[in-house]
Simulated scan of single mutants.
Amino acid sequence: MSTGKIRHLTRETIESPLVQVSLDLTSVHDALETATTAVAAGADWIEVGTPLVLAEGLHAVRALREEFPTHPLVVDLKTMDGGALEARMMAEAGADAVIVMGRAHDATITEVCAAGEEYGLLVMGDDLAAPDRVAEAVRLQRLGVGMVVHHIGYDHRRLNPGGPTPLTQLPAIVAATTVPVQAVGGLSIDQAIDCPGMGAPVVVFGAPLAIDSGSFRAADGDLLGILTEACRRVHAQTIRYP
């Protein structure tokens, strides 16, 4: 079951920046190996990325919960429908947070939020592809999500190089909401480390630092050394809200 550790997270209760490592992988073996490295490096949260959800589903969540019983598990379901069922299944497998898409119907978002209340989940609302990101963030908070994920998608970034980054509208989104905000999507290490100073205290590291974005396998090289230094730098930041 969910540990419930982050269900009631607020801006006020996040006293220092946190690191979330996204496991956008396609096997439990690779996920456990990379998560072990991430935890050794100082990561605070573990994300079961969408490719891992598709490839291994509940098995991955259960395996990570068993191996890391005290680390919050975020499951990137990208829920669009059937929200209550998906959230319940993940909570029972050990998830602490699930992600619902802002482009879903209001009913789906409220159903996921109701399940979050019942099963002790933090519900994160993703604004990917919304025409007005600030308005979307406000809507997601009004519908009950506990965190807004400001997200520029992988395909969009690949086909529109040089376009806006998640940092472009981040200050406006943080200013328009009162729940914690997270910025994800193609950020460099330095850009990600800047997030707490812009009001987004939960910093995500995934591709290309932790994951090979072309193959969705664990990245080569000195992952432990690079991630350890990145975690140290994030943890040393000061959280500032506009």
Rank of each mutant, 00 (worst) to 15 (best):
T26S: 05
A40P: 03
H59K: 08
E12M: 12
G162Y: 01
L18S: 03
M80F: 12
K78N: 14
S215I: 11
I226K: 12
T36S: 08
L9S: 07
L32K: 03
Q237W: 02
G206K: 14
V181M: 06
A63Y: 02
R157C: 13
D30Y: 00
G94A: 10
L223E: 00
E136F: 09
Q237N: 03
F216V: 00
G83D: 12
D190Q: 11
R7W: 01
I193S: 07
A84T: 12
S215N: 10
L23P: 00
T13H: 15
G42R: 11
S22N: 04
L73W: 02
V145A: 07
A210T: 15
F205G: 12
L85W: 00
L64F: 00
L187M: 12
I46K: 02
A35S: 13
T165G: 15
T177R: 10
G144H: 14
G57Q: 04
L122G: 03
C195V: 10
M101P: 09
P166D: 13
D24A: 12
M101N: 08
W45T: 00
D30W: 01
L58D: 07
I193V: 11
Y119A: 06
I99C: 07
V184L: 12
Q141E: 06
V234W: 01
R240W: 05
L54S: 00
G57R: 05
